[in-house]
């Protein structure tokens, strides 16, 4: 009798829990006057924290410019890279501006705006390294560092199956480890590696080569990540990206960081 009651209660609760997992919300009735933006804060020069604990970087400046363009009040939160997509899905923030590439694997989980930049991957090695080219044979058995669950980690494993690919929580940790001599090579975005190699910390190492991005892994460049169903916000952001490209804000921001155009090729007409 009592057990029967338990089961009834259980069934009701379980139904409540499980029956709803895939329902998708539309943002049609949201006004989006306030948007919470998630970023990582450990990926210079795109997003990082300076010594006073303030968020800086290309991603951050672009996000601020987009918010100004959309006349939206934005607040920033930081989130570790490997929890980025769940945190977006769970509503910890509304838009993900963290140098995330638009890949097919990620598009199954979340939506993306059009790209706001696209740069190729590259490999760096210590200056005294015997490795002269990036092939599976030369990197066989070598320890390659990359950031966990990035396109670069995935590409490293695909391109160099006989290497030992180690995945670090942030880009800064693999840099520390190649500076210490724990790694034989590291793989990341060419801009990220370049920035580091120019700094004092990167004096240990040199760029080995820039690789061609495999679209199957790297997708269509870097976009702003959004929850599926937030179509209104997507349209607002896509329009804002076009607007800041056209009114010169984008160029002004990128000139403070880079001496070349990080936007890459114009996307093919759809």
């Amino acid at each position: 009798m009592r057990l029967a009651q338990s089961f009834a209660l259980a069934a009701a609760l379980a139904g409540l829990f499980a029956g709803t997992a895939v329902a998708q919300q539309s943002d049609a009735d949201k006004d989006w006057s306030k948007v919470v933006i998630g970023t990582e804060g450990a990926y210079p020069p795109f997003n990082f924290l300076d010594a006073s604990g303030e968020l800086k970087g290309f991603d951050v400046d672009i996000a601020k410019a987009l918010c100004a363009e959309m006349k939206v009040e934005c607040t920033f939160v930081t989130q570790d890279w490997d929890g980025m997509i769940p945190a977006l899905q769970n509503g910890n923030f509304d838009a993900l501006v963290a140098s995330m590439s638009i890949t097919p694997e990620r598009e199954e989980q979340i939506a993306f705006t059009n790209k706001y930049y696209q740069t190729p991957p590259a490999i760096a090695v210590p200056k005294d390294s015997e490795i002269t080219e990036a092939t599976d044979a030369t990197l066989s058995g070598k320890a390659i560092g990359a950031q966990v669950s990035t396109t670069h980690a995935q590409a490293a494993a695909a391109l160099f199956p006989s290497a030992d690919v180690r995945q670090y929580p942030t880009a800064e940790e693999y840099k520390l480890d190649i500076e210490n001599g724990r790694l034989d090579a590291v793989m990341d975005d060419v801009v990220v590696l370049d920035e580091w190699l120019k700094s004092d910390a990167g004096a240990c190492c040199k760029l080995l080569s820039t690789l061609t991005a495999d679209p199957a892994i790297y997708g269509k460049g870097v976009g702003v990540g959004l929850r599926k169903g937030d179509d209104k916000l997507k349209t607002m952001l896509d329009d804002a990206i076009v607007a800041i490209r056209e009114n010169g804000t984008y160029d002004k921001i990128q000139k403070t960081y880079f001496d070349f155009d990080v936007y890459g090729k114009e996307p093919a007409a759809q």
Binding site: L16, F17, G19, T20, A21, V22, A23, Q24, Q25, Q89, N90, G91
Partner: peptide, 8 residues
């Protein structure tokens, strides 16, 4: 779970 609950 909370997210799917609030969606539902």
């Amino acid at each position: 779970a909370l997210k799917s609950l609030s969606t539902a």
